[in-house]
Design a protein around this nucleic acid. Sequence first.
DNA 1: GCGTAACCCTACGCACGAGTAGGTATGCTC
DNA 2: GAGCATACCTACTCGTGCGTAGGGTTACGC
Lengths: 222, 222
Amino acid sequence: MLARVSSTPTFRRLPRAVREQQMLDAAVKVFSRRGYHGASMDEIADDAGISKPMVYAYLGTKEELFVACLHREGTRMMQAIADVVAPDLSADERLWRSLQAFLGFVGAHRDGWAVLYRQARGEQPFAGELTALRRRIVEVVAGMLEHTLRSEGREVTETDLEVVAYALVGATESVADWLVDHPEADPEQTATRMMNVAWVGAAQLLAGISWRPPARRGEASS
Amino acid sequence: MLARVSSTPTFRRLPRAVREQQMLDAAVKVFSRRGYHGASMDEIADDAGISKPMVYAYLGTKEELFVACLHREGTRMMQAIADVVAPDLSADERLWRSLQAFLGFVGAHRDGWAVLYRQARGEQPFAGELTALRRRIVEVVAGMLEHTLRSEGREVTETDLEVVAYALVGATESVADWLVDHPEADPEQTATRMMNVAWVGAAQLLAGISWRPPARRGEASS
DNA sequence: GCGTAACCCTACGCACGAGTAGGTATGCTC
DNA sequence: GAGCATACCTACTCGTGCGTAGGGTTACGC
């Protein structure tokens, strides 16, 4: 009955693929702002300019929707890195480009990625989904280190490698968080700073220089 | 009317201070297992062997309860570190002892601390509480680095210091997460591995060795 | 031994938000 | 321009879980 006085002349009726992206955009935005539990499906639907049953019809339950967000953003991020890293580059060049790409991506998607990522860490249902992504990253980093080490004829245990990789990844995530909280900061410069910590340290390790705990009283300093 | 066939002969009626600790113990346990939202006040009360209104009477709302948990565990952790770090130690000794204490603490409180910490990062209401704690840690680390740098007559910007400190803290947290997920791992050995990454890198920085981005095509390598 | 304060309970109100039932309009095909 | 699939809506149900009302019981001072 009521004439629609919308700015868009005819009541838009969009194809599924388009609406799905709009919904995901809205979902990422709302999840970021409110957190997983704080976000309501009503608000997401509203923000996407659509009604709730549509969201259920296209993307499923709230949990599935969140996983879909995680998936899309995660894939985009991995892609952003893959786009700039060629396998024939030197180790430090690869690390440098990855950091640049990663922090650049986070800087450009402050609302999207980082907060989504922060969200997912706590929530049980997504821990799996998330650690899978994280594991892929850790493996890439560990592989990189290992390859370089092996090529220099040095031996390391699996565990050593894993811990170092975790440290590197954690450091980068932490810096990414810092970046999100400092909108004025430049991603590229931040990447340089990060590289200073990561590579300078890693290079030492690769060179075989390591730190040993000081001998305690009564212990022989073998 | 019903005779209480409890194992404890007389129906225990404990002083407030004791009950509060029991409640906090239960809360930490349940929050850790289920996450903030997943945990119900009923379950916490039940686990503490008390009824819900008691929890409200003593510790307040769910949010306040969680903050109380965060506070207690956070203080304990800071204390564990403060106990082993003397200000007259050398920088690397301080860092080493802090790492040992921190990872030792996390190792001993796998259920308690780390999961609680993971929880808090996502949830809006506690982001403040948490970043305050985190900031204190970052400041300590940054202060440590700055002091050492200054004592060698070198200058650094506030921001450089902050980013490096964030990276260090993030790396450590990440390794702590790894530790929680690997019950068989030895905290002490993990601390050594962590020290290898952190200190070897930091020592280079302190010595003035830094990494510079490679000049790109068309750019002058000033 | 009696008042009073602290400890402790059962049982509910109530809001909020996930998910759905059932129906309407619009474009597309032939 | 009839038929059909698909986009889309309003208006509900219903579970869950926070927080509380109101009342019972034990210790402790005097």
